[in-house]
Design a protein around this nucleic acid. Structure first.
Length: 434
RNA sequence: UCCCGAGUAGCUCAGUCGGUAGAGCAGGUGGCUGUUAACCACCUUGUCGCUGGUUCGAGUCCGGCCUCGGGAGCCA
């Protein structure tokens, strides 16, 4: 016998006048004495169920008393349009079956602190706001994959367990790997992407990245998801164009598919509507000049700080590219600027509304000798990069790529105060539970 | 790692000058035929983070520690 002979709340509007079965959990309840209201959620929405004394059986009517928040139940009733009901539809109950009574559900409809909510993240996911965020995250990921599929990129996943190779600097999580010594959880799939794009032309990878940095900020997680694309024969400008088209596509997709969820989050849609190509482009030189005028004490040569990103991000209503950073502030694999050797061909994309960096990309250094020189300058172990250097020996071509942080993107699209709500179970400096 | 802030009822918080603990919500009881975080009346709930000190007396003042939150650096 099947368990799925019921209707999902998101489809209830198509069943007006019919009797349907809904299976879910009690979100909240209210009573006016001889008329009870149940707010039932099923993961696709919330529906108000109405029970009137004398209309349902005495037993069903009285079962209201024992129903507690998050108790699981199955109901049957007639769908009715009613402006007094939240969402516009309600169910006039004829039958109610309790699956399980929940006792002392820890998250009440009143306010809680974030520490408490994070400790109950496994239950917090059931609340309206978290439900909306996770559904938007789902659409964001789907839109990204759809974008790349339509453009005939190939998904080529990078390994998560790696040897000592990556972007250096950031700290790595390590683990024992049989008799081969230490393995590390990958910080980026980029170097593998470079190999893959020489085989398949335009590729991307999509998976978790790990950084053991002791960061305690609203934009950091130790485990986060990123989408990284790498394209053979793409130069710097081609790279930027792809990035802005991707972002426009994803934002448009979410606006079209997640209207209800954005409404729950009370997101200002006009801000998202403005995300149209082309985006603003400023050089690192200009950025430093603007920041100094705005009171930042940033010096030419340094990377932008969090506050600096926020200032630049607030200047425009669209995302803005900050291009061509000093070589010293960037990773070894970036291609030197053809006219100014102290710069590299790269760009960070800053999201508007103060959110800061969501994409980092560059044209890659495709010259063997110059790359070896940079690896030595950074005092990296040359032998670990031997396969990477092979790519410059066997048919090297200009190529470019970028990495986009999925949680940062979701955080901005949802306008969340902190990145931790953008992923189901965040991993942070002081958080490994639940 | 550094800087700032917080820890009091199941939850969110208040607690004056150092004088012996109090609101809202949740829970319980009763009421209410259209509620919208429903409302109204009554009731229950405490290792004041831990530890040492000052004091006749510490939730309150001082030291140390723990936990959490915010930020910096670094980055998606």
């Amino acid at each position: 016998m099947s368990m799925i002979d019921h209707t999902y709340i998101e489809d209830i509007g198509t069943r007006v006048g019919e009797e349907v079965v809904v299976k879910g959990w009690l979100y909240n309840k209210r009573s006016k004495g001889k008329i009870h209201f149940l707010l039932l959620r099923d993961g696709t929405g919330i529906i108000q169920c109405v029970m009137v004394k004398g209309v349902v059986s005495e037993e069903t009517f009285n079962s209201y008393e024992e129903l507690s928040q998050e108790s699981s139940l199955e109901v049957r009733g007639k769908v009715r349009e009613d402006t007094r009901a939240p969402g516009g539809y309600e169910l006039e109950l004829s039958f109610l079956k309790i699956i399980q009574i929940a006792q002392d559900y820890p998250i009440t409809p009143k306010s809680h602190g974030t520490a408490y909510l994070m400790e109950h993240r496994h239950l917090w996911l059931r609340s309206r706001r978290q439900y909306a965020i996770l559904r938007i995250r789902n659409e964001v990921i789907f839109a990204i994959r759809d974008f790349f599929y339509r453009r005939r990129f190939v998904l080529v996943d990078a390994p998560i367990l790696t040897g000592a190779i990556g972007e250096t600097a950031s700290t790595l999580f390590e683990t024992e790997y049989f008799d081969q010594g230490k393995a590390y959880l990958g910080q980026t799939g980029q170097l593998y992407n470079e190999a893959a794009c020489m085989a398949l032309g335009k590729i991307y990878c999509f998976g978790p990245s790990f950084r053991a940095e002791k960061s305690k900020t609203r934009r950091h997680l130790t485990e986060f998801w990123q989408v990284e694309a790498e394209m053979a024969y793409y130069q710097h400008e081609d790279n930027l164009k792809l990035q802005e088209e991707l972002l426009e596509y994803v934002v448009r997709w979410v606006l079209d598919k997640s209207t209800k969820e954005l409404e729950i989050l009370e997101r200002d849609l006009s801000k998202l509507e403005k995300v149209k190509v082309p985006f603003h482009r400023i050089s690192y030189d200009e950025a430093v000049k603007i920041l100094n005028e705005k009171g930042s004490d940033i010096k030419w040569g340094a990377d932008l700080g969090g506050d600096d990103e926020t200032i630049l991000s607030n200047l425009h209503e669209k995302p803005v590219f900050v291009c061509n950073y000093p070589k010293k502030a960037r990773a070894f694999y970036m291609k030197p600027h053809p006219e100014r050797e102290e710069l590299v061909l790269c760009a960070d994309l800053l999201a508007p509304e103060g959110y800061g960096e969501i994409i980092g990309g560059s044209e890659r250094n495709d010259d063997y000798d110059s790359l070896v020189k940079r690896i030595k300058e950074e005092k990296l172990p040359l032998d670990a990069y031997s396969w990477y250097l092979d790519l410059r020996k066997y048919g090297s071509v200009p190529h470019s790529g970028f990495g986009m942080g999925v949680e940062r993107l979701v955080t901005w699209i949802c306008k969340l105060p902190h990145i931790r709500e953008s992923i189901p179970f965040p991993r942070m400096l002081y958080r490994l539970y639940p």
